[in-house]
Design a protein around this nucleic acid. Sequence first.
DNA 1: TTATTATATGATATTGTTTATAAATAGGAT
DNA 2: ATCCTATTTATAAACAATATCATATAATAA
Lengths: 174, 174
Amino acid sequence: MASHIMKKGAQGGVAMEERVKQIKQQLSTHNYKLTPQREATVRVLLENEEDHLSAEDVYLLVKEKAPEIGLATVYRTLELLSDLSIIHKLNFGDGVTRYEFRAEGAEHHHHHLICLNCGAVDEIIDDWLGPIERRVEKEFDFRIIDHRLTFHGICHRCKDQVKDPEKLIGSKVT
Amino acid sequence: MASHIMKKGAQGGVAMEERVKQIKQQLSTHNYKLTPQREATVRVLLENEEDHLSAEDVYLLVKEKAPEIGLATVYRTLELLSDLSIIHKLNFGDGVTRYEFRAEGAEHHHHHLICLNCGAVDEIIDDWLGPIERRVEKEFDFRIIDHRLTFHGICHRCKDQVKDPEKLIGSKVT
DNA sequence: TTATTATATGATATTGTTTATAAATAGGAT
DNA sequence: ATCCTATTTATAAACAATATCATATAATAA
Ligand SMILES: [Zn+2]
Ligand SMILES: [Zn+2]
Ligand SMILES: [Zn+2]
Ligand SMILES: [Zn+2]
């Protein structure tokens, strides 16, 4: 990493090219090609890695690079990348599926902090569930492959402007 | 509890009536009435407490008691109960919102174990996240109101018939 | 009581997201 | 060139969920 200040998704051209090449390899391994449309989609995802984009978001961004692309192709590409676990699908309860890259080498998904006041989605990169997972595997005889952990509450930016946090708990899908 | 063998949702009439009355009170507190349609819906939810029913599931079950009820009313009732945190909405990645009662007095939601092979949803009633929550609140200055924790893997019933668990990880929405 | 208002319901239409279909296109292999 | 398969585009369809609106029910006032 060139600098600790550098934003996650704003990496320079070299790292970008390397990651595109890596994804091309992953597709190739499963007999899929990195078509121009797929590459444009992948680049949009890489360039906005810190966000959690919906298919529509991706579609609009890809159209800037490749105006002729169809929405269905974006959906298919996201599904393909998802099948290969290059990205994964997330649901934050707002009615649309969102997508994010799987950190390279990460066995498990990271955790999310969702602010019920402003809607911000912050992340916990470290996996803190180790002890709990071992307990689950033992007590429930359940072989864990992945997990999702989300905390709903008030983020540090909103804490002063929220008087009654409990009132925010509502009918969100989670 | 009358017996440790008794199924959670199959409680006798007394407990049922008590819980209906309690929900009536909760609605009343917020100036809502327990109409016949709402009561029929609540009873279906109570009678199937161990399941995670979709709106359509609830609709079909309620129609057996109250054939004249409309789907929209079921949706409206589920939304209302959800707003009051009497039930909450869940998303298990199968495209439909599911609903379950909040255990009386439970501050937090319980955890789910989802089998990637058979789709079974088992539950961890205890809340094991206490230490992690304190760490999140401290390190991220995040006021936690609720959480969702789901483990995806292979349940004890399927463990013998699944050869390569990692292959099951796919493109589910979570 | 009757009139008036607010709330709730049922039937249906509409929305919005996602998937399925069919025809067109692009590369490779023969 | 022809064939073959994968991919794409545009469009239609599926689906859950919500909005609309006329009707019905319940609470309130006169
Ligand atoms: Zn916030
Ligand atoms: Zn994330
Ligand atoms: Zn199973
Ligand atoms: Zn549950």
